[in-house]
Structure formats: C-alpha cells, structure tokens
Design a protein around this nucleic acid. Structure first.
Length: 451
RNA sequence: GUGGCUAUAGCUCAGUUGGAUAGAGCGCCAGAUUGUGGCUCUGGAGGUCAAGGGUUCGAGCCCCUUUAGCCACCCCA
C-alpha cells in the first residue's frame, strides 16, 4: 500500500523552476536598478499584519480576497494583498525618522484569495514604488516616467500608459449629484472597453441608481477620443464648472506636458478618461500600462495617487503616489510573446572534471575564473568527457574548459566554444592569466583596459 | 465566490459502441564511441489513466465527490 503523500501545490500557488526563476530574478534586478536610478530606497514589511490594518482599505472586494486567520496567540491577522496598504501603515509609523518626501520601492510577494486565470495567481509578486509626503504633480509625472523606464529596460517597445485623474470623474459626478454612488459608477466606467457604452449606461442606472440622463452624461465624457490635447479641450465644457473637475484637468494637463518633457513619446502615453480603477483609495492621478501586443492580459503596471490612505493610521497628512509592476503578469505576457530566454543555469563555463587525481587543480582554476567575474561550474563527478560536454550543451553554457593529463603536463588547457565547437589551447602559466583573458574576452566581460 | 470546458508517461497527444499485459513522437538513461557535445543506430527505464467513491461480469471510457488547469462573470498585478 502506498501511503506516500501526493506532492502538490495549492491552487494559485506555484513552484518556480530555474528557467522561470532566472528570468524573475533578472526582471527584479532590472526593476531595482531603475528604482534606484530615480532615488527610490528599498524597504520591506511583514507578510502578516494585524487584520485591522488591512481590512477596508481597498474596498469590499479586497476584503473578501484577504487571507485571514487567527495566529497561535488568538490574534486576528491577515496576509498582505498589496504593498500599498502596508506602506501606509509603515509611513504612519516611521515617517518621523524618515522625513518627507519619502521615496521607497518594495519588491515582495502578496496574496489574494481570488479565482485563478492565466497570469492571475493567488500568490504573486509586485514591484512597488511610491513617493510619500507631496501633492506635487511632479511626483505624479515621475511615477509615469518610472513606469515607462521599467518597461523599456525590461525590453518592451510597444506599450501604452493610460492616465486619468479621478478628480475629473469625481467632479463630474458631484456636479451631477452622483457623488454618493462613486464606487458603483467607477466600476461601470471601468467596463467601457469590454461591454460598450450602452451596457455601461444600463449598468449605471441599475446598480448605481443613476437616471438615464445622468448615466449618459458620464458615458459621454468617458467616451471622448482623439489625441491627448483634443480630449483635454473637449473635457473642459463637460465638467459643469466643478472646481474639483477643473483641478483634475489642470493636473492632467501639467502631467502630460511634464511626462513629454521627461522623454516619454506621445504614442506611449494616452489620456483615457475611462480609466477609473477599482481600488477605493485613489484620489487623483491613476495609471495603467497595457502591452499593445497582449492587451487581454491586462495592466502590467498600474497605480495612482492616494492622498488620504495614511489618515486611517495617523493624524499627519501623508499624501502619496505610486505604482506597481506586476511581475507575474509581465512574465505571462513575455511567455506569450516568446520573449523568454531558454537559459537554465547562470553558469557560463563548465570546467570538466576529467582527471580524477586533479580535483584540487580544477577547484583552483574555477576559483581563479570566479574571481575574474565568470560564473563557473565544475562537473561534480569525473564522468566521460562526452557526457560532460553534453550536459554543458543542454544547459546552454557558453564554454567548456578542458584539462587532462596531457594538458597539465604541457602547462596548458583547452577552451572550447560550445556553439561553434572550436577549441583554443591556452597557457596555464602566471596564474592562468591567458585562460582568464581568453574566457573574459569570449564572454564579453572586458577588463579595466577593455572597451 | 458563481457558471462552463478539461485532466492518459517528464512534455505534446492517440486510445473505436465499456472488453485482454494502455500506445506514439519528443525528452530521459545506457551502449555503439573507456580524451571531445549537437547527427545516426541499438537497447532500457518511466503510467495506482489527477485523487477518492459508485454502476458493471468487466471502467482510461459511464455516474458522484474532491483537487488542479483553462475560459467567462467579478475583480485585478
């Protein structure tokens, strides 16, 4: 009888094999580099928070998706479902020693107990960056610049950052007397692209209790098309002299010109009045980034301004703006686009363990190569050379370094290029200087004198 | 969370109206080739047919439950 345990993972939770993990780490490295280049500092917070910290921050839906339980001490706790709410708590708690403005990035796992789909998991990773303690539109514009730079650095060219400002929508709703039903209205607006204007009107009248005329006014505004300038011009007369709407408009205008000045080409930034976002805490700028080739995968980098989030934890005014890069959604997109490399190991060089009596020499050579910045793997057993080369070939290593009795006797070794099959013989004299030089040159590592 | 579709070897998939030891391609391991990978040839390992229960003389196939994946709704990274 087989009473062994079935090896399996929970729905929406996944293992990451080396091939997947190498890309994940590469993207995280890229994100870190971009964040740091804009002056964002790293932080981390606990996976587990007191339930009261997390509840009611993102809306009814996120409350439902929250993983919650009692810990061994009977405390009600929850696993973070995003990195923004923990940031609000973190800022309220530490802003005194951090000072404002405070810019941080946070790359970490979050959990949501929702139903899974392609590119949607219950455990996934976000790369967040936020600026706390300023209402300046410059921070909003910089957020867009970072999003743009992130996508570019990861290797995307065809994508569009959709921006909007909730003040515009809220201003209109207030002037229409629909302020009380903002959440329902915004939710309906979000579906515009998917279900079309008629059904959006229908949903607004049914679920938000709007009149047909009110709903039509909202949809008219949200449907505006054309270039960014054209939309701005059309927007103004539709806002019914709402001061809030006016401010939103001004901020959008300022944002768009700042972003353009910052180097984002016009075709990658689009004013889209229908971008509302479901999270309750957004108050101003909102943004979503859609990959033009795989729009169905949804936004891969989104966020917005939340000027009241920390007020739940502190009296101090802590406005903030930020966005989140969805690592796992991005990977799903890259897979669809065939952008994932087949790399299965970080090793660049296989050092063949060939002569059983020479292990010490192999370790010494490997050490010298590593000190020169090369990732080297020594084959773990003195197997047949053919087998070792086959292993290196399959794992797609670039080079094999081969030294047996003959080479050692002559004070040299072979450097074999696994893609061409060509082999060079180099000297091991002077601390294997020629070997190091050759390997670095082939791998394009360059040294202090190199290009 | 609700609804629909799906689950056969590591991967992609065959498997007839329910019928005998469940197959193929690719991959993997070994040998041909004990100092040189990718090609070729030969041999081999690998499956409680997702799990559990039921109907039947007999279930990979039919029924129920569970789990997981995909799709839609919802929402979102």
């Amino acid at each position: 009888m087989d009473d062994r345990i079935l090896p399996r993972t929970l729905k929406g939770f996944r293992d990451y094999l080396p091939q997947a993990m190498l890309v994940r780490e590469q993207i995280m490295d890229t994100a870190r580099r971009v964040f740091r280049s804009f002056g964002f500092s790293p932080i981390d917070t606990p996976a587990l928070e007191y339930l009261e910290i997390l509840l009611g921050k993102g809306g009814a839906e996120t409350d439902k998706q929250l993983y919650r339980f009692q810990d061994h001490g009977g405390r009600d706790v929850g696993m973070r479902f995003d990195l923004t709410v923990p940031l609000a708590r973190f800022a309220a708690q530490h802003i005194g020693e951090l000072g404002t403005p405070f810019k941080r990035y946070h790359i970490a796992t979050v959990w949501r107990g929702e139903n899974t789909q392609a590119g949607r998991y219950r455990e996934f990773m976000q790369c967040d960056f936020d600026t706390i303690g300023t209402r300046s539109t410059a921070a909003d514009a910089e957020t867009v610049l970072v999003a743009h730079e992130l996508l570019r650095s990861i290797g995307f060219e065809r994508f569009t950052i959709h921006v909007n400002n909730r003040m515009v929508l809220n201003g209109l709703l207030a002037s229409l007397g629909l302020a009380e039903r903002t959440t329902e209205i915004l939710r309906a607006i979000d579906k515009l692209a998917k279900i079309g204007p008629d059904r959006v009107v229908e949903e607004m009248t049914q679920t938000a209790g709007a009149s047909h005329e009110q709903a039509s006014r909202v949809v008219q505004l949200v449907r505006l098309t054309g270039g960014n300038e054209a939309i701005l011009a059309q927007l103004r007369p539709l806002l019914g002299n709402s001061p809030l709407g006016e401010e939103g408009l001004e901020r959008l205008t300022e944002l768009l010109s700042a972003v353009r000045a910052g180097g984002v080409p016009d075709h990658r930034i689009k004013l889209d009045v229908s971008i509302a976002r479901g999270l309750d805490y957004y108050t101003g700028t909102v943004l979503e980034t859609i990959l033009d080739e795989v729009p169905d995968i949804g936004s891969v980098c989104s966020g917005g301004r939340y000027d009241n989030l920390a007020e739940l934890y502190t009296k101090q005014q802590l406005p903030g703006i930020g966005a989140s890069l969805g690592l796992d959604r991005l990977l799903a997109a890259m897979e669809k686009l065939g952008m994932l490399p087949e790399t299965q190991t970080p090793a660049q060089v296989l050092l063949a363990y060939f002569d059983p009596a020479r292990l010490g020499d192999y370790f010494q050579l490997a050490g010298a190569l590593r000190a020169a910045g090369v990732c080297v793997e020594v084959f773990p057993e003195p197997a047949k050379l053919g087998k070792q080369l086959q292993y290196a070939d399959r794992k797609k290593l670039r080079l094999a370094v081969i030294a047996g009795e003959r080479e050692f006797a002559a004070g040299e070794c072979q450097v074999k290029d696994l893609s061409t099959g060509e082999s060079l013989t180099v000297s091991l004299a002077d601390g294997a200087a020629e070997l190091l030089q050759t390997v670095k040159q082939i791998l394009g590592l360059g040294d202090a004198n190199g290009p």
